[in-house]
């Protein structure tokens, strides 16, 4: 495992910690999209179906359990916690799940890694993760004031994707035994995971722009439509 991958995972983990911290300490989930959180829970369930059948490392297994557990905890807080659920911006979080789930699933059926249930759902989870942030970004656009924790949460989530891209480039060049192998692999750049990762990172570009601008000007974060 290289440093980019580790930094990416830690950033991802930190984003979840920040979100749970916001929910638990402020007893509020204002500005957080339940749609996005439910989609992430679905992403983790469909991706980690091989949790018990395919062992990679202790680190991987623990992290998978953490991601599964925390994503369901967040959804539980937003849906059922009697104080937290009242702070949910239900009227502004109107993005439809199926609008993202359906195309991801159709695409996974068309271009699966291999044709069996686990592989199709794995491919589906890769596509879905790429676009699952959309309801959250739409909600941010609609919110007048974005509190620091919410801003930091989305920033860390985007940071995780950028670090994963660096990780893939690093692996592409460093992990090949054959010197010319990377040229063939580079043609393969249009494959599932890479394209999804690129799309996902691009989605954050706009957010990053306003985040850094507000940080430079020491202003409160505000996205203008």
């Amino acid at each position: 495992m290289n440093l980019f991958r580790l930094a990416g995972d830690m950033t991802h983990l930190l984003s979840i910690v920040v979100l749970l911290l916001k929910i638990r300490t402020t007893k509020s989930c204002a500005g957080i999209s339940l749609k996005t959180q439910e989609l992430y829970a679905l992403v983790f369930v469909t991706r980690y179906l091989d949790l018990f059948s395919r062992y990679v490392s202790f680190y991987n297994s623990v992290m998978k359990l953490v991601f599964l557990g925390t994503s369901f905890a967040i959804v539980w807080y937003m849906r059922y916690h009697k104080v937290v659920k009242q702070t949910y911006n239900k009227d502004e979080d109107t993005f439809k799940h199926y609008f993202l789930v359906l195309p991801s699933f159709v695409l996974a059926l068309l271009i699966p890694h291999a044709f069996n249930t686990v592989e199709i759902l794995w491919t589906f989870s890769i596509y879905l993760e790429a676009v699952a942030i959309l309801p959250q970004l739409v909600l941010l656009q609609r919110s007048r004031n974005i509190d620091n924790l919410t801003g930091n949460y989305v920033f860390l989530l985007g940071g995780y994707r950028v670090l994963y891209l660096f990780n893939w480039v690093y692996r592409l060049f460093m992990e090949e035994n054959h010197k010319m192998r990377w040229i063939r692999d580079f043609v393969e750049i249009l494959n599932t995971a890479w394209m999804s990762g690129l799309v996902q990172t691009a989605l954050y570009a706009d957010f990053f722009y306003y985040y850094i601008k507000s940080w430079k000007n020491r202003e409160k974060l505000k996205l203008t439509a």
Binding site: D9, N60, K64, I126, N167, W168, L172, D185, N191, A193
Partner: peptide, 10 residues
């Protein structure tokens, strides 16, 4: 292949 690469990630 690249797909196999990302299979050991999260």
């Amino acid at each position: 292949c690249l797909q196999e690469h990302v299979k050991d990630e999260l």
